[in-house]
Simulated assay, not measured.
Amino acid sequence: MVDPTLIPFDGVTPTVDDSAFVAAGSRVIGKVTIGAESSIWYNCVLRGDVNHIVIGARTNIQDGTVIHVDSPKGGGDGLSTIIGNDVLIGHMVMLHGSVLRDHAFVGLGCIVMDGCTIESDAMLAAGSMLTPGKTMRSGELWMGRPAKKLRDLSAEEIARNRLAAAGYVALAQKHKTTARAESDPIASDRLL
């Protein structure tokens, strides 16, 4: 049976680490790589058709998020979307041709546009829009439409965000085990 969540495109099939969780209803298309213990939650779309999407380890992409890339044009390479390790991406986020470094945090409903970089431990507040080419420096909090720097995050806020990323790893594994057991009665018997 073909997995409807992983869709080949132009001869390229997504690469997903065995320990990752990709929820039912998601669509992962083409040149997408998902690292160890990362999670792609329900109804996400990751479309690596005209460039690459790379997701590191222990990163969570929450429900309804759309991730795309910028195509090569005018002799350029276009823009891949590169997401590091232990990144938190909230529900209904849109990422396009951007880079999120390790431990970055993108809040609910944000838009991150082409050529943006969110450095390690930086946080984009819920509902914000990061316009093309902006860079959020490590440890900064930005918010608004368009987003602007509000302040630096405290050490406590950074620690809390890092704990939240670890919490999603455990929750994803529980979903992965539960979903497998509930969809396969024989496997379910083995788990008891």
Score class of each variant (00 low, 15 high):
D114M: 12
V45Y: 06
R58P: 02
I29C: 09
A125M: 03
V16R: 12
I55H: 03
V28R: 12
S39Y: 15
T81N: 08
G127M: 01
G139R: 14
M123E: 00
S80R: 11
G78A: 09
A104S: 09
S80W: 08
G107H: 01
A104D: 05
H52F: 15
G133E: 05
E37I: 07
A20Q: 10
V28N: 14
H68G: 01
H52C: 12
D63R: 02
L88T: 13
I55W: 07
G109P: 01
G127V: 00
P14V: 12
G56E: 01
G84C: 12
A36F: 14
T33D: 11
G115Q: 03
A24V: 12
K31G: 02
F21I: 00
V93K: 00
T135F: 08
H103E: 10
A126G: 04
I61Q: 02
D70S: 13
M94Y: 09
D77S: 12
G64N: 04
E119C: 08
S120R: 13
I82W: 11
H96A: 07
T117C: 04
S39F: 15
V16G: 08
I55A: 05
G64E: 04
V69Q: 05
M113I: 00
T81G: 07
V50E: 09
S120V: 02
D114F: 12
V32M: 13
G35F: 15
D86C: 09
K31M: 15
H96F: 11
A104P: 02
G56S: 04
G30M: 11
I89F: 09
I34D: 08
K134S: 05
A57Q: 13
A57N: 14
V87Q: 06
G133N: 08
T15H: 14
P14R: 14
V54H: 11
V93G: 00
M143S: 08
I34Y: 10
F105Y: 12
R58H: 06
G30I: 07
D49C: 13
A104G: 06
G133P: 06
V54Q: 10
G75A: 07
G144Q: 04
T65H: 00
D77W: 09
D17N: 15
K31I: 06
T117E: 07
S39T: 11
F105S: 10
D63E: 11
V22P: 08
T33I: 14
V106R: 00
C110L: 01
I55Q: 04
V28F: 15
T33N: 13
F105G: 02
T131S: 07
L88R: 03
